[in-house]
Each structure stands twice: as structure tokens, then as C-alpha cells.
Amino acid sequence: MEANTHVHRDDVASKLGMWLFIFTEILLFGGMFIVYSIFRYNHPVAFHLAGEELNDTMGLINTIILLVSSMTVAMSITAMQRGQVRRSMQLLVITIILGLAFLVNKYFEWGAKFDHHIYPGSSFLRELGTGDTLFFGLYFMMTGLHALHIIVGLIILVWVAFYIQKKRTRPDKYVFLENGGLYWHLVDLIWIFLFPLFYLIH
């Protein structure tokens, strides 16, 4: 904020604002979950079979990656609150690396699907039938949107790391780290539902 305006700092407000933003993100995905539930209701058998096409192991690995990264970012906040800036930074970097690993994994998973001619609008998918078209349409749209949020989350976390480096985020002023962490947990939260809904419910 400019030097000549009123300086006002309210961490509680920042956190409330972040939570409100998270609500909108949850509802954004909520719209997709509504679509999912209705198409699943309309095409139960096709969804059942199409779900078996997905690679459970890949999904499981990514689940574990995200759960661990969620813990490390939460620990990073604990470290910052206890004044252990170096450790906080290390944990944050681990989180970022885990996030990148998730994306790499996702890249190979999507790539394998493309190799099998499974992508939105493909003629192969069309031959499989309407249920499969919708299942994979949802799969690509929802995991794609989720991956986009991972990328945004990573950008935010890198930004936080930069702030810690510059000592603009420090043990007495760390709400930015907290908010970045909240956003990262949101990404985890969404994945917790995506994983069983796409990979597991056979």
C-alpha cells in the first residue's frame, strides 16, 4: 500500500477473505460434481466400465503425493509460527517439488490416454458410446481444471517462498504463507473426491 495512505493490517480479514475465495472454488468444482452425479445416474453401467479403464496405481500415487504435500505445507506454517524460518522454507520447497511430481505423473497419465485415442471429441470415444464420451469428457474437464489449480497453487507457493526469502513473510507476519497453504489444501480437498469418483468406483 502507498506510503501516504492509511496503513491497515488485519490478518483475520485476510484469512476470512481467503476462505471466502475458497468457498467459491469449492462451488466452482461443485458445479462439475453436479454434472458428474447426474450423468452417473443416467449412465451407471458405462461409467462403471469406463472407470476401470483408468490406471488405479497412477491415481493412488498422485493421491499419496498430494496428501504428503498437504502435510508438509501445514508443517511449514508450524515452523514459521515457531520462528524456524529455514525449516519453514525447506518444507515449502518440498511441497513445491511434490506438486511438480503430481503434474509430471498427470502428464504421463493423460499422454497414455491420448495414445489410446481417448481424448475429448475423438472418433474412437464416440464409437465406445455416449456413456464413455461423457465419462471421459468429465474426466478430462475435472482433472484438467484440477491440474490448472495445481499450477496456480504452485505459482502462489513459489511466490510465498520468494517472500520468505525477502523476509517480507516472517515469523511475526506470515498470513500470506497461511493463505497459500489454505489454497494448496483446497487442491488436496478436491482431489480427495476426484480420486474415488473416477478411479475407484467400479
Partner: peptide
Amino acid sequence: LKIGFFDPALG
């Protein structure tokens, strides 16, 4: 992308 959510032809 023709994902088909609202297209009756695609289900």
C-alpha cells in the same frame, strides 16, 4: 472440444 455434456447427440 465437443465434450458432449449438453449435446444430445453425444449423450
